[in-house]
Design a protein around this nucleic acid. Structure first.
Length: 564
RNA sequence: UGUCCUGUGGUGUAAUUGGCAACACGUCUGACUCUGAAUCAGAAAAGUCCAGGUUCGACCCCUGGCAGGACAACCA
């Protein structure tokens, strides 16, 4: 089937594009742009990472450069192959290609070690035997300068020997570290002799037991960027204070080639959402959600299962923009992006989620008509599907009111509406059960108003419907926002963000859907007309359809009602 | 009582570098409609954190405040 692919030109440049444009003009990066997306494989990617992925790969695309995928795997105690796999799947799913440039910081361990030896020989690094607690105590606070380590002025030969023995495994964890010799009095904490290597006798997912010393982030990252020929190393704001250190290492190494430059941007925040890995993990562990790919999670795998498309997420990343100021994006924008994509591309179907029986008294018993229905009015060339119509139907319970308010365009005693793709009907009377609940709505139909026939008869409302005889039963999972307040992380001391969990974030209902969706497979999107966008969940099996609600249609009627 | 970063409609991002603020989402009207969707037309909404200064002219430059954020893992 044909699909709509939205593209939009962008006039002005964001601050990253401006920097790159200038660098290109001045040839300061050799006329090249080379970025990287550097996840640590210790968890699942979320929508915030998607922003970074779109930024890094997008910038490379826009300026005819390249973008690497690099796993920042310098801490063997937290990282696993499982995460490497999920990250690759997510980046690929988002639509980006790192070609053969799949790298791991752990590939550079040997090179990094040689760099470290160089710094030791230059007198710019030393082995320190203080405990973690002592180092911490000596470091001071942001407002109070630190004190120098007693080991700071050891000779080069001794440092070399100690470093060598650290690598060989002669020392237990925590007994020594290699530190850069910078300035314990620096107002920047990160410059107070930062740790470069720590001893960890741990098995690494890629290097196995080859190493028992592992580089710290600050020591590994910039040098990895350099090794890969990265020109613009784009990261989030919290690394801003690390930049002097990033540059210090690169300078101290007296490197022959072009040095990368670190540029920071403000991370994504979303209303009604938490984004920190720790908090997301706690939701999984406490079983508040069913896993990392629960459709309520802001993880890429969760959004995918929810029914978000790669195009919608890319569009979102484009529209939120990039800057250096803290921001909180309204989820409404994300929802708008998926609606825009799905409106243009998702086939329509009729589904009734909360049925009430409707009987057309003057329609021949036993007769079934196949009504042609447009698959997608935005893509008329995709044709029509046939929907069976009969004397007894299901319509949505909320589409009928015995005592309707004014401007209620739906069904009510004496009122006329169109059944979409079929006939105009008039409600004659209702039948109630013992509890006073409406069990049948009786109507008459006007044969000359059959869809497609010329008829002057006009009605204000159009209802969707389903024929119980032919409809398929389905499980529908109606998802809503996971949190009930815009900023769930804003809690008072002693309170927990989980107090803001939305108790109604998932409702499971039984529904009836028209037959033509029957042979669709997991991941297929639909618009249930007048209701919302849905996607077939991987749990779906033949004979047991499962749909997830991605997002409801905009609804100005219930909005009007609510505002009363 | 340290260092660094950031302050533009409700939200986010612009203003081609000093020429009286634009776009998107949202909101509100109205049109159209066999989806109360989509689409189309229109409106309200900031005078750019504050106070000075430079200038014919400041969101943009200078000075001083104020507010918010980041930084004290052998995490990334």
């Amino acid at each position: 089937m044909k699909e709509n692919t939205p593209t939009e030109p962008k006039a002005s440049l964001n601050f990253l594009e401006q920097i790159i444009t200038n660098d290109l003009a001045s040839k300061s990066t050799g006329g090249k742009v080379h970025t990287r997306f550097p996840p640590e494989p210790n968890g699942y990617l979320h929508i915030g990472h998607a922003k970074s992925i779109c930024l890094n790969f997008g910038l490379a695309q826009k300026f005819n450069g390249k973008c690497n995928l690099r796993f920042d795997d310098t801490n063997p105690t937290r990282e696993e192959q499982e995460y490497v796999d999920s990250i690759k799947e997510d980046v690929r799913w988002l639509g980006f290609d790192w070609e053969d440039r799949e790298y791991f910081a752990s590939d550079y361990f040997e090179q990094l070690y040689e760099f470290a030896v160089y710094l030791v020989k230059k007198g710019k690094a030393y082995v320190c035997a203080m405990t973690a607690e002592e180092i911490s105590a000596h470091r001071g606070t942001p407002a109070i300068p630190g004190k120098e380590s007693p080991w700071r002025n050891r000779g080069v030969e001794e440092n070399l020997d100690l470093l060598d023995r650290m690598r060989k495994g002669e020392f237990p964890d925590g007994s020594h570290v290699l530190r850069a010799k910078i300035d314990m009095g620096s107002p920047n904490m990160h410059m107070r002799d930062p740790v470069m290597y720590r001893i960890m006798h741990a098995h690494h997912h890629r290097t196995g037991d080859n190493w028992c010393i592992y580089p710290m982030y600050d020591w590994a990252h910039g040098q990895s960027d350099y090794i890969e020929g990265i020109t613009h190393s784009i990261c989030t704001l919290e690394f801003e204070v690390h930049r002097p250190l990033y540059e210090w290492f690169l300078n101290a190494l007296d490197l022959p080639h072009l040095k990368p430059r670190q540029i920071e941007f403000a991370r994504l925040n979303l209303t009604y959402t938490v984004m920190s890995k720790r908090k997301l993990l706690s939701l999984v562990q406490d079983k508040q959600v069913k896993g990392w790919d629960d459709p309520r999670m802001p993880t890429i795998s969760g959004l995918r299962r929810r029914g978000y498309t790669p195009a919608s997420i890319r569009m979102f990343a484009d529209r939120v923009g990039v800057a250096k100021r803290e921001n909180v994006i309204e989820v409404g924008l994300l929802e708008h992006c998926i609606r825009e994509d799905l409106n243009k591309n998702a086939p329509r179907a009729m589904a009734v989620l909360n049925p009430v029986k409707l009987i057309i008294d003057n329609y021949p018993e036993g007769q079934v008509e196949e009504m042609p229905a447009v698959i997608n009015p935005e893509l008329p060339e995709n044709g029509t599907r046939m929907v069976p119509f009969s004397r007894t139907l299901y319509i949505e319970r909320e589409d009928f009111m015995e005592n309707p308010p004014k401007k209620f365009f739906r069904l009510a005693p004496g009122a006329e509406v169109r059944l979409k793709y079929a006939y105009i009907i008039r409600c004659e009377h209702v039948v109630k059960d013992a509890d006073g609940e409406i069990s049948e709505i009786h109507c008459t139909y006007f044969p000359e108003t059959r869809s497609g026939l010329p008829s002057d008869k006009k009605v204000k409302g159009t209802l969707h419907w389903v024929c119980p005889e032919h409809a398929l039963e389905a499980e529908v999972r109606i998802y809503d926002r996971l949190f009930s307040v815009p900023e769930p992380e804003e809690v008072e001391d002693g309170q927990d963000f989980r107090m803001h969990l939305n108790p109604d974030s998932l409702k499971v209902v039984k529904a009836w859907v028209e037959p033509y969706v029957g042979d669709a497979t997991a991941g297929q999107h639909y618009q249930f007309e007048r209701n919302g966008y849905y996607v077939i969940d991987p749990d779906s099996k033949t004979g047991h359809l499962v749909f997830n609600r991605t997002v409801p249609l905009r609804d100005s009627w219930t909005k009007v009602e609510k505002n009363k």
